[in-house]
């Protein structure tokens, strides 16, 4: 694999806070890499170090094989889309998109042509003469994207680009960004705290926690084989059962089936007796929250959201019901205990 950028032993601290600690990361060329993790885990800091807005306290960053650790942002040729869009309020949409081209002394005709081509790419050519204030949030976002792409950057950096959009637009922009990435062949680094967004958009996911990388891999790999409890938890695994051999089993709530005690089918896999604490009707499924004990005798909470095959008004269980929770072998993920 060719890497478009590489972090080697990169640390960034603010006083006592270590925002990013000993980060080693390769960004593969032509691929979309997401940095995924909860708020405050160091995603923005990582992106801003790559863009040159922050100089790492230690370590090196290379871009296209050349050391860029201390290079100022204007010398990196990267396209960055900020969470706040950061459009130039005093310039028209076209002049926003043409800003970087003007600095590169692209002649006026050619510039106009490139500006329109990039606005076309995001479907906003008809708004070229508006000021940013006259655009909706989603449109401003697209202008910011066109502005960043117009300079033919070696990497496109997106910091939570979708978090300020409403839910429907957000889902639409996911495939839009994917399409643009496919058409341009750009290397993209995207920061998000939304696991669904990361799963849907990434070629490679980098899951971070407290300034450290927890797991790197293709979405399907990370989703089906989370490396540790943190990653599993972040990706929506909710049932964690310690085993007597020291390992930890985890099952997604949608894979845990609940039957009344004594009526459970006999399947190979996991079978745990539990007491229902709460059952919430949600139409296609219901959330059953149970109390059980794992193999070490520690009390745990189990959550099941098994989808029903038929429409029913039956809420399923009542608090206090004795039940059995089950999962099949291929629905169980075994984590090593030390994390």
């Amino acid at each position: 694999m060719t890497s478009a950028a590489e972090f080697t032993g990169v640390t960034q601290s603010y006083g006592d806070t270590v925002a990013v600690e000993n980060l080693n990361l390769e960004i593969e060329e032509g691929k979309l890499t997401t940095l995924l993790g909860p708020s405050g885990c160091g995603k923005t800091t990582t992106l801003r170090m790559l863009a040159g807005y922050i100089t790492p306290s230690a370590g090196t960053i290379t871009i296209n094989g050349a050391d860029a650790t201390r290079l100022p942002p204007e010398k990196r040729n990267l396209g960055m889309v900020f969470q706040s869009y950061a459009l130039f309020p005093h310039l028209t949409v076209a002049d926003n998109v043409g800003f970087g081209l003007k600095l590169r002394k692209v002649p006026t005709d050619k510039r106009r042509e490139l500006v329109m081509a990039n606005l076309d790419l995001v479907g906003l050519a008809h708004l070229a003469d508006r000021k940013p204030k006259a655009l909706s949030g989603g449109q401003q976002q697209r202008v910011a994207l066109a502005r960043a792409i117009a300079i033919s950057p070696s990497l496109l950096l997106l910091d939570e680009p979708l978090s300020n959009l409403d839910a429907r637009l957000r889902v639409q922009m996911r495939s839009e960004i994917r399409r643009i990435q496919g058409e341009t062949g750009l290397t993209v680094v995207l920061v998000t705290h939304d696991q669904e967004e990361a799963l849907e958009m990434s070629d490679t996911m980098v899951v971070m926690r407290a300034g450290k990388v927890m797991q790197t891999g293709a979405p399907a790999t990370v989703f089906t084989a989370p490396a540790n409890r943190f990653v599993a938890d972040f990706l929506g695994y909710e049932n964690f059962l310690s085993q007597s051999d020291g390992s930890l089993l985890t099952v997604r709530p949608e894979h845990l089936r609940v039957s009344a005690a004594g009526l459970e089918p006999s399947t190979a896999g996991l079978t745990v007796s539990a007491v229902v604490r709460e059952s919430v009707y949600r139409g296609v499924d219901h959330i059953v929250t149970m109390t059980a004990a794992d193999a070490t005798g520690t009390p745990i909470t189990l959550v099941s959201t098994t989808r029903r095959d038929t429409l029913t008004a039956d809420a399923g269980f009542l608090p206090g019901d004795l039940v059995v929770a089950q999962a099949r072998d291929h629905e169980i993920v075994r984590l090593s205990a030390d994390n």
């Binding site: 863009a51 040159g52 807005y53 100022p72 942002p73 204007e74 990196r76 040729n77 990267l78 396209g79 960055m80 900020f82 969470q83 706040s84 950061a86 459009l87 130039f88 309020p89 005093h90 800003f99 970087g100 600095l103 590169r104 910011a144 502005r147 960043a148 300079i151």
Partner: peptide, 24 residues
């Protein structure tokens, strides 16, 4: 971030001041 965006697009600090900060 507006000034940072200008830097990222290739503007030197001085250029950023005159073409972005001052108009703002």
């Amino acid at each position: 971030a507006v000034e940072e965006a200008a830097r990222g697009l290739g503007a030197s600090p001085l250029r950023t001041f005159f073409s972005v900060t001052l108009p703002l």
